[in-house]
């Protein structure tokens, strides 16, 4: 590990979906608990939706990590676009049925009829808006049979709303919406992340004004915030190595934040 505190801080904000890095915030915590409760109910489908960068994938990952030891749960972080490949993957992961032969929708239903679980297996599908409508219709039919329970994440756009209406409006399902962070949540998010990596000094360099500027630039988008802070600490790391006199160790300067925003494309200079 490097001695440069800014290099350590930079690594914290590397944008990866890892449940270990999940930061529990008040509002997010409420949504997560509601989601967990929904899974216990006899619902066929659960929808988790929100704008990009609101933490849907991270929450799905966290859910998988928390439920993994208690029930059969499968997470598909990357959509499987091909229908046969999707059913074959599902048969392998849910029923432990390995085959090189083609598995279509009919074959999969026949297979699922032969298995019975005390707790219905849970399949988590991230980026569900990328699935073809015909496949989504078949997923709906599988969920109707109550053999598998699905949790989807969707980007909240007009198009995805339409998909939801077309495919799921008559189904029994529950939806949870995730929101962009408020300035207070963003400050907590940044400081919690830094403190988790023992970056207490760096965490104290963030004040209300700094976080407000970051929030203005990123619109509370966690992914954009991660990118911005990763670049920000990269710049600080350079200054620390080359021009340490230019660093104010008590406050994150607006200039550096704006430079990071220029670098990440949040500001068009």
């Amino acid at each position: 590990m490097s001695n440069n505190i800014f290099e350590q801080s930079k690594e914290v904000f590397l944008d990866v979906v890892d449940a270990k890095e999940y930061i529990q915030l008040d509002r997010v915590s409420i949504i997560y608990n509601a989601l967990k409760d929904a899974i216990k109910k006899p619902l066929k489908m659960i929808l988790l939706y929100g704008r990009p960068g609101t933490g849907k994938s991270m929450m799905l990952n966290k859910l998988y990590r928390d439920l993994f030891e208690h029930q059969k749960v499968i997470l598909y972080q990357t959509p499987i676009i091909d229908e046969n490949e999707f059913f074959r993957s599902l048969a392998r992961d849910v029923y432990d049925h390995h085959t090189d032969n083609e598995i279509n929708f009919t074959r999969f239903n026949e297979l699922s009829a032969t298995y019975d679980f005390d707790v219905v297996p849970l399949v988590l599908l991230d980026e569900a808006q990328l699935y073809a409508p015909s496949l989504m219709e078949k997923i709906r039919l599988i969920s109707d049979s109550r053999k598998i329970k699905f949790v989807f994440t969707l980007h909240k756009t007009e198009r995805e709303d339409l998909i939801a209406k077309e495919h799921f409006k008559t189904r029994i399902w529950e939806s949870q919406e995730l929101y962009n962070a408020t300035p207070a949540e963003l400050k907590l998010y940044i400081q919690k992340k830094l403190m988790r990596a023992n970056g207490f000094d760096v965490a104290n360099m963030f004040n209300e004004k700094n976080v407000k500027l970051i929030h203005t630039l990123t619109a509370g988008n966690y992914r954009e915030t991660n990118k911005l802070l990763f670049t920000l600490f990269g710049i600080y790391e350079w200054y620390d190595d080359n021009q340490p006199t230019k660093i104010n160790y008590t406050n994150i300067s607006h200039k550096t934040i704006e430079m990071a925003a220029i670098r990440t494309g949040l500001i068009h200079a």
């Binding site: 710049i235 350079w238 704006e258 430079m259 220029i262 670098r263």
Partner: peptide, 18 residues
């Protein structure tokens, strides 16, 4: 690799324009 000096120049231009 970050070119911080170039970023500084871009930042100055941005501030003037703003």
């Amino acid at each position: 690799m970050l070119n911080v000096l170039e970023l500084e120049r871009q930042w100055r231009r941005y501030k003037i324009r703003r």
